[in-house]
């Protein structure tokens, strides 16, 4: 897995182009954030945590629940 992450990282870095501050209008849209709508994200995380075997996000989680 770490080999794939390294390859992916190299591809990403190689593919980067300088983006000036005034060129970031498209990136500033709310839907372009990695952690978007927090109410939806919190609920989705809880529902799937309670109904599936896998869990884990690109963020710290909250407490557990009796649902799983």
């Amino acid at each position: 897995m770490s080999r794939y992450l390294l390859i992916a990282s190299l591809v990403i870095v190689a593919g980067c182009s300088p983006v000036k501050a005034w060129q970031r209008g498209d990136l500033s849209h709310q839907e372009m954030q990695f952690n978007g709508d927090s109410l939806d994200a919190r609920l989705n995380s809880h529902i799937y945590f309670s109904k599936e075997g896998a869990s884990g996000e690109a963020s710290i989680g909250g407490g557990g629940c009796g649902c799983n």
Binding site: L5, A8, I12, V13, G15, Q23, M32, F34, E57, A58
Partner: peptide, 14 residues
Amino acid sequence: QIINRSLAVQLAVN
């Protein structure tokens, strides 16, 4: 990482 003016990516481990 911002790749260009319309593309950004994230890699993470938990």
